[in-house]
Amino acid sequence: MPVDRDSSLLSPELLAQLERLELVTRKVFRGRMKGERRSKRKGQSVEFADFRNYVPGDDLRQLDWNLYARLEKLIVKLFMEEEDLHFYALVDASMSMDFGRPTKLDYAKQLAAALGFIGLIRADRVRIETLGQGVGEKSPILRGRQSVWRLLQHVEAIEPGESISLSEGIKNFCLRNRGRGVVVFISDLMDKGGYESALRYFVSHQVDCFVIQVLSQEELEPDVKGDLKLVDCEDADEAEITVSAPLLSRYQQTLNAFVAGAQDFCTRRGMHYMLANNQLPVEELVAKHLRRRGLVR
């Protein structure tokens, strides 16, 4: 199995760890194909679900003849249906993600690959997209273990440099993907236009949304001193600061308020929010924190 072609994204140890996991959603969606996930629909699995009266048109094969023999009533025996899950990973590949060590984008890609791998293992439909894709540019839908290699290739190909606002990107994403499912949005949420309007698209799209905000260590605890001219890498905006203790503490307050605001925003709207430091190993993030949040099991 050509799984670990690119060990920089997913190491064998990580893969072995990930194989034991599966994606979870609190919502139950209707899948497209037969999968390993219980569906709302009654179907053809071996697991008994319910009885109901026969109405004309039902498949005769599903009649419970034993009951007919006893009760002389036509009762249809319903079974649970197992379906697949739509899993979308939406990666913010803007310039601002190209910071940190590892860069936030690498971190995001690694995370997307890991989650996608879990999806593939559990026979879910996995689609990895970036914010910058246009309405018509759909990423391939991957399914099954044999697609791991393609998944990795696809993730690997994501390059930083897209410049599109959060709301525009998410809007495009929603237009592209009608299907419902689990959306993991990996971004730093640093948009001068604000993230609120962007995230509202997810709400209206009725997906089970996980917002994972990736911030680098430099952003969380800036190690700067002196008189500086800060240049925004996206729009070349400048901010002149003279670093001082009150300034730094004020920054921390602002950052905390920002993070808390985002979390509050997401929680109110039924989305999951998580802050990821790029120093936190992906395996730990997935196995520990996301498991606790209920994305994986």
């Binding site: 640093m190 952003e219 602002t254």
Partner: peptide, 15 residues
């Protein structure tokens, strides 16, 4: 001032 490139000046401006 020493120029320094940062991911975003978003928070800094607010500060």
């Amino acid at each position: 001032r020493q120029p320094l490139e940062v991911p975003s000046t978003y928070l800094w401006h607010r500060v």
